[in-house]
Design a protein around this nucleic acid. Sequence first.
DNA 1: TCAACGAATGAATCCTCGA
DNA 2: ATCGAGGATTCATTCGTTG
Lengths: 392, 392
Amino acid sequence: MGTLRTAAAGAVARKQVSRTGSTAPAPRNPPRSEVLALDEIIVGDCIEALRRLPSESVDLVFADPPYNLQLEGALSRPDQSLVDAVDDDWDKFASFAAYDAFTRDWLAEARRVMKPNATLWVIGSYHNIFRVGATLQDLGFWILNDIVWRKANPMPNFRGRRFTNAHETLIWASKGQEAKRYTFHYEALKGGNDDLQMRSDWLFPLCTGEERIKDESGRKAHPTQKPEALLARIMLSASHPGDVVLDPFFGSGTTGAVARRLGRHFVGIERDEAYAGFARRRIAAVEPLPEDAVATAPAKRAEPRIPFLSIVEAGYVQPGEVLTCSAGRHRATIRADGTLHAPPAIGSIHKIGALLQGLPACNGWTFWHAERDGSRIPIDAFRTEIRARGGA
Amino acid sequence: MGTLRTAAAGAVARKQVSRTGSTAPAPRNPPRSEVLALDEIIVGDCIEALRRLPSESVDLVFADPPYNLQLEGALSRPDQSLVDAVDDDWDKFASFAAYDAFTRDWLAEARRVMKPNATLWVIGSYHNIFRVGATLQDLGFWILNDIVWRKANPMPNFRGRRFTNAHETLIWASKGQEAKRYTFHYEALKGGNDDLQMRSDWLFPLCTGEERIKDESGRKAHPTQKPEALLARIMLSASHPGDVVLDPFFGSGTTGAVARRLGRHFVGIERDEAYAGFARRRIAAVEPLPEDAVATAPAKRAEPRIPFLSIVEAGYVQPGEVLTCSAGRHRATIRADGTLHAPPAIGSIHKIGALLQGLPACNGWTFWHAERDGSRIPIDAFRTEIRARGGA
DNA sequence: TCAACGAATGAATCCTCGA
DNA sequence: ATCGAGGATTCATTCGTTG
């Protein structure tokens, strides 16, 4: 992990390449803030500003980095001679290398700033997303999904020489392979999707009409403003209310507007004061949703753990009582210490359930039933009652 | 042997690029064939075999390389059954760097073998596609589109820790930015898409059921067999009848089977003799479509929704099948790219319907009928069915 | 004969806590 | 760090069996 993509690319990436060539290199070790200034826009160079942020301080990163637009000039030389196909002509790739170095710099800083359970989202198109994805893997990020934003109303390909470019790609990644406790509201998304898992292909219209921020002359204020619905799904998926969302390429402030509406904090970085101005006015006009409208749907795995012994102790079931599976075929006797007895085996509700079925595992809470008023009810019902009464 | 060089072979003096896999390095300058052996499978190492192919000799490359999945433990479904993982040796690489070197080697050779107007398609998932895409750009390929294969029936995320991984990504690239005359049947694709431009997101079901090649014991013969509908759309988009399609990771031979059906030639490379055997038998059983069903359309435009091509790809109607109007007076033949053929005209369902009736316009969905069980039903019924199953 | 039901399965980087 | 145990978790489709 964290290996360089190629030895040659690594060599280029290692020497310092400034942002786009024109600005001065960012200081290596700027003074680092001890606290984050929340819900504000830092106007300045993205990488330099990131270097000043405290480590492990944000819960979510959303980034819409610049595409590698200078590519066209750099690669415009005639290149149809097959024999030169793998020629190590490095200036030909100079702009790729510069873009890679820039990507590497901001991603590395973003990773440092992320809390251990934070995740990062990056959006891009085929012009840059492959380079971003590879760099991200090289830095040790662990990709969780790639997500496709299918545009309901994409711009057609006017010259008819390609397929309509009708999607953009997002990469969702945790800090590393070991960071397994990242925030993800699986149940909430499923509930909002007709009780089906949310898939990796999302359909949204482009940001147009009222939502599109205009300048004084009525023209669009920013060329790549993203739809708020996209940001909302991201934040609802991968953050809690009150969390801090960092956007190092703040632009017209969609991240800030959605964060405010959904009860999240934001930290924005934007080098263009004009964009920052549009964003400030936009965000100020946002009315936050009421708290209960943005509260996270409860997840079963987040509920407090109740040992089966507590069910016995609370008197919902009695030592010596017989539990069965839903069909009544498998039987076991409750012991006073909260284990089950299915002669000759003794063990937890899970272990005995697995044993009797010949399976490697079993959720004893849903497998075992007690007879009440002539019908069999799962013992999970008792656990639910205890939780409703405020715990074990 | 091999002292006699072709001109193309002699022109190639290559930089040393070491192969980092576990097998012995391929010969640096193997004797290069002067002619391609068409419609045959070369059994052997992909890169070594590619080095022997003549330069500028193929019209299209489709590649389904190893994904480098990096799976850890076993995964069980909620019912405790085990997922049959892709744990084959051919998918294991020591590091990202090793995978990148492998990718660079086969892509460079594929580029050399491509004719100037040829294009390359690579399929992958988030595990490998970013590295493939970046390498491809480094080598001078020019990306035309990235295409998303949306899976109609993907495997769910059983642990509820991510989004359903419901798509794979294809990259479509020409040899370089200057190669502007690449093959692309814009009009045909548009005609088969209800006269709308074909988008970059494609919906297909997984390869299952009858289409899935089985071994002697009835188990899947290859772990990653791709659907024929996917390959068919690629070949109809980016090749002519009679063209040569190269597949350096031939596997179960989907590329060969579709090429034969659509009147294209193939060159397959596969290092596993068992896979090659399955592929040979499979391809031999394919019945090529009649010539006029696969000839490319010189058609123009007319009007809008669910692509008729999807009806064809889903198997509701067959290429070569005759559609009629409700009275049976007008007739047209379905072509593999989703257009209709009523000699001498070729066009969309709407355009051909209008033409035959001498009207300025026509709704092909209600005009055209297919015969089923002795009665004529409108093709709109198939569209309704597809919609009921979840969309375009 | 057909409907109903259940088993099987697909390129998958698939848990979390406490001792 | 590692280890063991609790216990949470699935969608669309095909194909074979049962009634």
